[in-house]
Amino acid sequence: MSLAMGTDYIFSKLLAGLSTLFSDKVAGITIHDISFSPEYLFSPKHKKNLFKWLDRLNKIEWPADDIDFGKLKIDFELWYYELGGDFIEFSYQKNYLIKPSEAAEQLGVSTVTLNKYIKQGMECLNNGSQNKIPKYAVELLRDPVYGVLMQMIGQKKKRMQQPPSERLGEIYKEIAEYQIKYGTETYQEAFSEYDGDEMDDPTDYNHWKDLVEESTEILKMAGGIARK
């Protein structure tokens, strides 16, 4: 069996498993077909992954708790994108979704902090009238490894689908927050006393600077600055 066929077989089995074995959680999965990335397909990393997935297929237990389901889902999505996929979306059973306020309480954070994690990729669905969070996302954020992976996948998905104008709006909003925080219009004014590397915590300086640079690049791409 060729590598592509073997990969397709295992991938299809996992996709079917996620759709059917977790029907108490998952209502459906929407996915674009993959044209396997040859560079990844023939890489040592992929060969190693294939054996891991084979092993994992044999060991899936059900009913699975939220964290086991969440880990499988995230690992599957990561693999899907590595293989060359560009769109995958899960829909959930209604009773598997909770309100953000409930999630915040379970996690021991404010709704403001929860919104920060949602912006950073914690899965959150808009059900028309309100946002809802799948239960696994709460459990995964508590995991020091999968909390990062969940945010990574969420941000990757957003970047792939977000138009530049929307990203520009986000940037301006974040810059405005820094302007208010420091009471200055530019990061140079806010940190005029320092060289960025000499600060105890240069996080805000670096982030503000990066936002300005990114906004300039987006405008260049759009042709706005070139016209001046």
Binding site: G108, G121, P144, E213
Partner: peptide, 25 residues
């Protein structure tokens, strides 16, 4: 690595990840 659920007298502490075309944090 370890997260801190309902940590002491302040908010829980979880891992943070931010990535875009300019930086990874």
């Amino acid at each position: 690595f370890q997260t801190y659920d309902h940590f002491s007298d302040r908010e829980s502490i979880y891992a943070n990840y931010r990535s875009d075309a300019k930086r990874l944090e």
